[in-house]
Design a protein around this nucleic acid. Structure first.
Lengths: 227, 227, 227, 227
DNA sequence: TATGAATGAGCATTCATTCAT
DNA sequence: GATGAATGAATGCTCATTCAT
C-alpha cells in the first residue's frame, strides 16, 4: 500500500527511534501521573533523551499528547472496525445482541488505555483544544452508532435518529466512566444490563427485533414485523 | 468605632466577614479562571485581604474549593427539595411529566453555577478527593431519582431500581454536560426530548402512566397490577 | 514636605530594605554585564534574597530597569536643576559660558552612571518601551536647552527654536557617547571645543553675546544690540 | 547528474549558492526581527538549508552579521563615491549646496537598510566587536567629510578640521537616527534645515561661500575672502 | 559539502505556603 | 486574627553549536 520510498532513510531512522521513545515514555507518564504533573524534563529523562530533543520533535507538551491521542484513536478505530464488520457479516443478529455489542465495544475502547482516556476527559473540561478533540471523538462515536443501527432503521421506534445516537453515545460513555473511573457503587454487570435495557427499549419495541434478510449497507430491509 | 463588644463575639464576627469575602472572591475566580490558574495571591487580592488571612481560614486551596462546593450543594439541594415537594403535592402527575421534570431539575442544577460545576467535574477526573466528592453528589442524585419514582414503583418495568437510577443519573448528567459544556451539534430541545424518551421508555411501558391515588411519601400504594 | 506618616511601618521597613538590595545589585549587574546577560537568578543571588522576592517587588526584569532609570533620572535632574538655577542667578553670563555649561552638564549627566546609560541607549534601539523612555528623556533635554537659552532669545540667530534645540540635544548626546562609550580617536578637549563652537555659532553671531539686563524667566529682555 | 566536473569548481559553485542563500535570508531576518531574536535554526529554514550548512559557512551567528555588514558597507560606499565624484566634477558648487549634499548622503546611507543599521547600532552599544566595527564606519565618515570640504579648506572658519569632522559626523548620524528610528517630535524638514544651518555656520562665515576655481583634490584654492 | 538530530545549560517567571510582626 | 514579605523548587521552553551520517 504505502509507496516504497527507496532503500532507506538512515537519518530518519534515528529520529524515528527518538520520537518513539518520547511517545512511549510520555504515554506512560501522562497516564500514570497526569498531564500537568508530568514535566517535559521528566518525559525526556524517562525517554533517555535531552529536553531539547523533545522540543525538536514536538512543538510543545500539548502537541505530544495530541499525537498520542491520535495514535490511540487510530488503533481503537481499527479494532472496532474489525468487530463491527464482523457483526455485519453475521447472519441473524438480533437487536439485543447489537445493543450488547455496542456496550461491549465501548468498554473495550475504554480499557485500551483507561488512564490516558481519563486524563484526556479531564482536559476536555478545562482546555478548549482538548474539548474540540473530545467533540471529534464524539462525532465518530455517533457515526458508529448510526451505522450500527442502520440496518434496523425501519424497525426503530425513534424519530430523531441523530439526537438519539448522540444521547446514546453520551450515556454509554458516562456509564462506563462511572464504572471504570469513579467506581460505581453497584456491580458492573447490573449497570451494563440496565444501560443495555435503556438503550434497547428506547430503540425497539419491547420484544427483541431481528433483521431477517441482512444486506449490506444503506439498503432498505423489509419490515421485520415487530409487535 | 466597632467598639460594641456587647454580648457577642466581636472578633469572630470580623473573622466571619473575612471568611466570606474569601469565599466570594474565590467562587468567582475558580469559576472564571479555573482552580489551577487561580493562585492564593489572586484570591486574597480579590477578597481584599492578606494571603496570610487566607491560610488562617483554610488549610489550603483545595479545602476552600471543598467549602465552596459544600455551600453550593446545600443551596442546590434546597432548591430542588422545594421543587420536588411541589411535584408530590400535585395530584395526578403522569409519568411523562415526571420524567420531564427530572431533566428540568438537572438542567436547573447545572445552570446554578455552570463554570464551577465544570471545574469540579474536571477535578473529579484527576484528584481522588474531588472524585470522592463527585461520588457523594452522585449518590444524592440517585437518592433523589429513587425517591421521585417511588410512587410509581409498581408501574415500573424495571427490576433493578438501584442500577437503573444510577444509570439514569449518569446519563442525564452526561447529556447536560454535552449540551452545556461541550456544545452538542444538535439543538438542545431535540436532545432533551430524546433523553426524556429514553428514560421514560426504560421505566414505563409504552403508554404514559398515571398514579391515581397519590399519597404522601414512602407510602404503600396499592398494587396497581402491572403487566 | 512629605507628610509625617506617624510612627513607623515596621513591615514596610524590611520590604524596603529588600527592595533596595535588589535595586543596588541589579544596578551594578546591568551596568557591568548588560541587561540581557543578567538573569533574575543572578540578581537575586547578588542581592542576597530569593528569586521569589525579586518578583514580589517587581513584575519583571524590565520594570526593575525602568525603576532604576527613574531613580537615576530624578537624581540627575536634581543635580542639573541646581546647576542651572545657579547660572540664572549669576549676573553677566555670556553666551560662551552658557554653551560651555550646557556641554559640561551633559557630560556630568553622563558620568553619573555611564554603563547604565550605555545599556539603556542600546535597549532604546531594540525595545519600543525603552525607545519611549529615551524619547521622554530627550524631551526633557530639549526643554532644558530651551529654558537655558530663553533669556537670550532675542539675540539668537535662529528662527526655529524647537527644531534647533532638538538638533543640539541629539548632537551633544552623540558626541558624548562617541567620546565616552566608543572612544573617539581625538582628544576629548578638542572634540568638546569643536562641539561648543558648533553650537555657539549656530545660535549666536560670531562674537560672544552677553545678556546685560538679566531678568527672571519669560521676560522680554531689551535688545542687546548685535548686528 | 552533476557529473560535469569540467574545468570549473562545481562544488564551490554550489557552496557559493548556499552561502548566498544564507546571507539573503539572514539579512532579512536580522532587519526584521533583530539579531538576538533570530536563531540559527530560523535562518537555515528561511534559507532552505540545514543548520549544519550554516555552520559550514560561518563560524557563528556574529560572523554572519559581520559579513552582511561588510557587504552593505561596500555597497553604500560605492553609491556615495559616485555621488561625491559627481559633486567634484560640477563647477561652481557653493558651500550651502555642499552641506545639504552631506546631509542628503547621510540620509541615503541610512535608508539603504535602516533596520539593519538600527540593529548594528544597538549591538555597537553592547558588544565590543560591533563597537569596533562602528568605529571603523565612523572613520570612513570622517574621511568622507574631510575630503568633501577639502577644496574649501581655506575658506573654513575652523581650526581643528579633524575634530570638527568627527563632531559633524556624530551629529549628523544622531539627528538622522532621531528622525528615522526614534521618531522626532518635529517635522523632518525643519530638523534637517536646522542641522544644515548648524554645520554651515560652524564651517563658513555667515554668507554662503563659493569655490570659484574648482580644481581636483588637495589643490590650494585661492583665499575666498573672509575675516 | 550538506544534513538535521541531539544536546543540556539556561532563562523568566510562578506559586503554595510559612512565619515574624 | 490579620498581615504581607520571604521562600526556592519547579516549569515550559529556547538556542547556539556539534557531529555522525
Amino acid at each position: 500500500m504505502l509507496k516504497d520510498k527507496g532503500r532507506a532513510q538512515p537519518k530518519q531512522k534515528r529520529a524515528e527511534e527518538t520520537r518513539e521513545k518520547i511517545i512511549a515514555a510520555a504515554t506512560e507518564l501522562f497516564s500514570k501521573d497526569g498531564f500537568h504533573t508530568t514535566s517535559s524534563k521528566k518525559i525526556a529523562k524517562a525517554a533517555g533523551v535531552a529536553v531539547g530533543s523533545f522540543y525538536n520533535h514536538f512543538p510543545d507538551k500539548k502537541s505530544l499528547l495530541f499525537e498520542i491521542h491520535r495514535r490511540h484513536s487510530t488503533a481503537v478505530h481499527e479494532m472496532i472496525a474489525e468487530k463491527v464488520s464482523h457483526i455485519f457479516t453475521t447472519e441473524d443478529v438480533d437487536s439485543r445482541i447489537l445493543t450488547r455489542e455496542l456496550i461491549r465495544q465501548a468498554l473495550a475502547m475504554h480499557s485500551f488505555s483507561p488512564d490516558l482516556h481519563r486524563e484526556l476527559t479531564a482536559l476536555a473540561y478545562t482546555d478548549p483544544d482538548f474539548a474540540a478533540m473530545a467533540r471529534r471523538d464524539e462525532e465518530d462515536a455517533v457515526l458508529l452508532i448510526t451505522k450500527l443501527f442502520d440496518p434496523w432503521r425501519d424497525a426503530l421506534r425513534i424519530v430523531d435518529l441523530e439526537a438519539t445516537a448522540w444521547v446514546i453515545s453520551q450515556s454509554v460513555e458516562a456509564v462506563i466512566h462511572g464504572i471504570k473511573i469513579f467506581g460505581a457503587p453497584v456491580e458492573e454487570q447490573r449497570l451494563t444490563d440496565a444501560l443495555g435495557d435503556m438503550i434497547h427499549r428506547m430503540l425497539f419495541a419491547d420484544t427483541e427485533t431481528r433483521v431477517k434478510e441482512r444486506s449490506r449497507k444503506r439498503q432498505s430491509s423489509k419490515r421485520s414485523g415487530n409487535a
